[in-house]
Design a protein around this nucleic acid. Sequence first.
DNA 1: CGAATAACCTGTGAGC
DNA 2: TGCTCACAGGTTATTC
Length: 306
Amino acid sequence: MPELPEVEVVRRGVAEHAVGRRVSEVEVLHPRAVRRHLPGPADFEGRLTGAVLAAARRRGKYLWLELDEADSVTGSELAGTAVQADATTAMLVHLGMSGQLLVKDGAAPDEKHLRVRFRFADGGPELRFVDQRTFGGLFLAETVTVDGESLPVPLSHIGRDPMDPRFDLDAAVSAIQRRRTGIKRALLDQTLVSGVGNIYADEALWRAGLHWAYPTSVLSAADCRRVLDEAARVMRAALAAGGTSFDALYVNVNGQSGYFDRTLAVYGQEDRPCRRCGAAVRRDPFMNRSSFSCPACQPVPADAHF
DNA sequence: CGAATAACCTGTGAGC
DNA sequence: TGCTCACAGGTTATTC
């Protein structure tokens, strides 16, 4: 399940193996993979063909490739309207639940769930978007400059992640405290703080000793700061391990899995002893999924916001 | 606007 | 053996 560390591993792989290369051919093999590209698959293919992948960037769980599309057919030209001089286009990628970006030799057989294929003018390996559950997808969008950084317009609502050097901890704490919900729901809200998903939320809360239903309205600034610090720490550790993997669904661009799952303290550890106190890890239903926590280290608050 | 929930998907594995 | 069903879950759209 790709969260920030897994997406960052993929971003680095794409930066190393695809950036600087000119796209010669794009094949959308499943329209659902580009459903957020409203002009449709043909426009997606046409605009990317001839473009150079100029940079690989990330915000939260989204990543994008900046395009130098000097030689490509732009959507504006297709529409017969003027091209905005300073507009930069990016290809946005969200891996969803099961998306993969793979760098593969063209002779390698197609994956069962291959959705989009990119071939390059240099004749080197292909870039493939593979996605079993099709929650992920690719689409093109214009970028704008915010605080001296380029950001695709559709990502303007996504906050910075806790590992971002420009992450504003005090602002994030205030925003969380203003909410009227449980701390885990707030952690998963990508507008408040990005990059955290179900796995690292549970791990950060265990490290901070807070129950997932702790009400944000009575959460002290110190506790809130601590859980955000722990989120940054656990994601940094996961990144160093190459990401978390439970099965073959999440892999880097070379198809290799990370090994951080061996380090998870509570996520997926139901009935196993807490590493800190030995109590049996519990699992609670939470938003059509699960929350894992230690009943002793993370007691249920009196005014829990379930 | 804030909060909560349904919907989108497919493969796996438990239980019968 | 073969079937059903719960489960995995990030994001957006919708509703209140």
